[in-house]
Computed example of a mutant assay.
Amino acid sequence: MVNFNGQLHSKDSTFLNQDNRGLQYGDALFETLRVVNGKVFFWEEHYFRLMSSMRILRMEIPMEFTMEFLEAEIKKTVDANNLKDSGARVKLLITRQPSGFYIPTVNEIDFIIKVESLPDMFYVLSDKSCEVELFKDFYANPDMLSNLKTTNKILNVVAGVYAQENGYHNCLLLNNKKQVIETINGNLFLVKGTTIKTPPLHDGCLDGIVRKKLIELINGLEEFELIQESISPFELQKADELFSTNAISGIIPITKYRKKEFQVKVSKDLIGKLNARARLA
């Protein structure tokens, strides 16, 4: 079942048309959420990021769009898909209502909630290899729009096609200053000794929820120093460890970049702490 503006529809039904602005112009935002046993991981952070993003894009936020209202709609959709007692991947999509061309004539929104099952109840570190390469065909802009989780993800899609065509599992994206900002599907962290580095938001990386949570978590650990600083491609092969993060997988270890193979030690240590933080959130 899919939730469109509070009404449940079967997954094979048609409730959007060719005038949808997300389709026409990429005029949409989304949040991807992990829900376990009816609990939305880091819901408060997701909610406030969504509200902030809607304001930046000058979308009109409905009066009923409280944290409680949207959480109830998410849980209603999870329940309708018989996933109340298991793990679920939830996508909450916000689109400006059909009107106008590049200039919309209204700023009211529609929302869509879709749900899929997840194999694991909590974050589990993958033991699969993950070889990455730099994607240098196109670059991200280091600005606030790049921080938002919009449906304008053609850079990520083309990078994904490049990875498939060349036998890589993922790609590292660059901004137009040739700084490494993220992977196709997550924020990037680099470990060197006792220092953990992640790109700052002004470099153009996504303002990720798990990124934020890991920064808070690492800042509370005595054994590591967290730095938000630009990452040069030349640093990658000198790193002890690389990993990416997102709301569904938690932490994704990167095992190889060119001739360099990486440890997974810090990732293993942090995944348990992240699960503990998620259960308490």
Score class of each variant (00 low, 15 high):
Pro200His: 05
Cys205Arg: 03
Ile215Asn: 02
Gly193Pro: 04
Leu221Phe: 01
Gly186His: 11
His202Ala: 02
Leu214His: 11
Gly186Thr: 14
Leu221Trp: 00
Phe189Gln: 08
Gly208Glu: 09
Thr195Asp: 11
Glu223Cys: 08
Pro199Val: 07
Val180Ala: 13
Asp203Lys: 04
Leu188Glu: 07
Leu190Gln: 01
Leu201Ile: 08
Gly186Tyr: 05
Ile196Cys: 07
Gly220Asn: 10
Ile181Pro: 07
Thr198Cys: 11
Ile196Met: 09
Gly193Gln: 05
Arg211Ile: 13
Lys213Ala: 10
Phe189Asp: 10
Gln179Lys: 15
Asn187Leu: 02
Leu190Pro: 09
Pro199Glu: 05
Thr183Gln: 09
Leu190Met: 14
Pro200Phe: 09
Val191Ile: 09
Ile196Lys: 11
Asp207Glu: 14
Lys213Asp: 05
Leu217Ser: 00
Asn185His: 09
Lys213Gln: 15
Leu217Met: 06
Ile196Gln: 08
Glu223Ile: 05
Thr195Trp: 01
Thr198Asn: 10
Leu201Thr: 01
Ile196Asp: 09
Glu182Gln: 15
Ile181Asp: 03
Pro200Leu: 11
Glu216Phe: 01
His202Met: 10
Val191Phe: 04
Ile181Gln: 07
Lys192Glu: 13
Lys192Asp: 08
Asp207Gly: 06
Gly204Val: 06
Thr195Lys: 13
Leu190Arg: 06
Lys197Val: 15
Asn187Trp: 03
Leu190Lys: 06
Glu222Thr: 01
Val210Gly: 10
Thr198Ala: 12
Cys205Thr: 10
Leu190Trp: 04
Leu217Gln: 01
Asn185Thr: 15
Gly208Thr: 14
Gly193Phe: 05
Gly204Gln: 02
Ile215Tyr: 03
Lys213Glu: 15
Ile181Asn: 06
Asp203Leu: 00
Glu182Tyr: 12
Val180Ile: 14
Gly204His: 02
Val210Met: 14
Ile215Glu: 03
Glu223Lys: 15
Glu222Ser: 10
Leu188Asp: 07
Gly204Cys: 04
Val210Trp: 11
Lys212His: 15
Ile215Val: 15
Leu217Thr: 01
Glu223His: 04
Lys192Thr: 08
Glu222Asn: 04
Asn219Glu: 03
Gly186Trp: 10
Lys178Val: 05
Val210Ala: 12
Gly208Gln: 11
Leu188Arg: 05
Ile215Trp: 02
Leu214Val: 08
Val180Thr: 13
Leu201Trp: 03
Val191Tyr: 05
Leu188Gly: 03
Glu222Tyr: 00
Glu216Gly: 00
Pro200Trp: 12
Lys197Leu: 11
Leu217Lys: 00
Thr195Met: 09
Gly186Lys: 12
Thr183Phe: 10
Leu190Ile: 08
Glu216Ser: 01
Ile184Arg: 15
Val191Leu: 04
Leu221Met: 13
Lys178Leu: 13
Ile181Tyr: 02
Gly186Leu: 14
Ile196Ala: 10
Gly193Asp: 09
